[in-house]
């Protein structure tokens, strides 16, 4: 297994690198350092995307494989999967890392299927040794940790966002251009547009702080209080429960839980959220949890590090002011 290279998929959207890209490259770097091989990161996008190669070099890419063309301005699942698969089949890679963002979750299994390889999905921890890769993958809505061994020439690993933190580690990042393995315009699955959601600033998967609101906020307009607190932190995103997305107060893409997003921020602030099991499934791995709820028996208090019993409509503005003040001092 000596000197085997490691592949990383570097996600971008609308001409910008995603954090997922740096996480994948950092994971690959760790493995390449033990195999003595190189990290090859693939970057795909519309004309000009190659300019982002430098950032990948900064996280440890020895080679940046650039797939650039009008056919890749929007995510092009079929042409991209075919091109990544061709690269993996030709390259004797020890492992290929993807990050299970919305895009990575779609792409990684496509690549695995094309290469006729098994996949380890939504991996929170991994070790590479000899011809085996051992992974941990939470299942049963996070209530059971499953440990697997993956045996394959190239281990295809899709990491849970945030499982690996991007680390600077400058390498050459030699750019190598490739063209699409299939006609990028003659694909069957056509992404016709990528629409930015209204008001979406920081993404839930990437934000170190999440302020989340439940039915206890009473109405859509009161989410202003949640947004204000998020703004006071500066690095926070806004989440919601299904009760809230069902009411249409927030879009479904903000929903955290069993059937929404799985998040693990440094700090999760639950406002007017009861703590139903399906909600906890999406956020119980957060580092620090704060709960504000009127009902001192609410289940959310069982997992909250810090709880305040009271009316969130009254407490939120005070907390926002205090956080602003604290940030000023910092």
């Amino acid at each position: 297994m000596a000197n085997m290279n490691v592949f990383a998929f570097a996600e971008s959207r609308n001409g910008e690198l995603r954090r997922a890209a740096l996480e994948a490259v950092t994971a690959a770097r760790g493995v390449a350092d033990s195999t003595g091989g190189q990290v090859h990161a693939m970057l795909a996008g519309g004309p000009g995307i190659g300019a982002l190669a430098e950032k990948l070099a900064g996280c440890g890419a020895d080679v940046v494989v650039v797939l650039e063309g009008a056919g890749f301005t929007n995510y092009n699942p079929e042409a991209l999967a075919a091109t990544v698969a061709a690269r993996l089949t030709g390259g004797a890679y020890r492992a290929a890392f993807f990050v299970a963002s919305a895009q990575g979750r779609d792409l990684a299994p496509r690549v695995a299927a094309k290469c006729k390889l098994p996949i380890a999905s939504d991996v929170t921890d991994f070790t590479v040794s000899g011809d085996a890769v051992a992974v941990k993958h939470p299942g049963y809505t996070g209530k059971v940790i499953q440990s697997f061994t993956l045996r394959a020439a190239t281990a295809i690993v899709s990491l849970r966002p945030g499982a690996v933190l991007p680390k600077p580690n400058a390498k050459a990042g030699t750019v190598e251009s490739v063209s699409s393995a299939i006609d990028a315009a003659a694909v069957r699955v056509r992404v016709t547009s990528t629409v930015q959601s209204e008001g979406a600033k920081l993404d839930l998967g990437e934000a170190p702080v999440i302020v989340s609101g439940g039915r206890g906020l009473k109405e859509a307009a009161n989410f202003k209080l949640v947004e204000d607190l998020a703004a006071a932190f500066g690095n926070a995103a806004v989440g919601a429960t299904r009760a809230v997305t069902d009411e249409g107060w927030r879009p479904h893409s903000d929903q955290i839980g069993q059937t929404g997003r799985l998040v693990s921020p440094q700090l999760y602030i639950a406002c007017g959220i009861s703590g139903a099991i399906q909600h906890l499934a999406g956020m119980r791995t957060s580092k620090t949890i704060v709960a504000i709820n009127r009902d001192k028996e609410a289940p959310i208090f069982k997992i909250a590090d810090y709880g305040i019993v009271g009316d969130c409509l009254e407490i939120l503005p005070v907390l926002t002011a205090a956080v602003k003040e604290a940030k000023k001092g910092a």
């Binding site: 959207r13 929007n74 995510y75 963002s101 919305a102 895009q103 779609d106 069957r188 699955v189 056509r190 992404v191 016709t192 547009s193 990528t194 629409v195 930015q196 959601s197 979406a200 600033k201 920081l202 993404d203 839930l204 998967g205 990437e206 479904h252 893409s253």
Partner: peptide, 12 residues
């Protein structure tokens, strides 16, 4: 298809 802070429209 929902993405982080965005969505895609897709046909096939």
């Amino acid at each position: 298809r929902e993405l982080e802070g965005a969505y895609e429209l897709i046909e096939c």
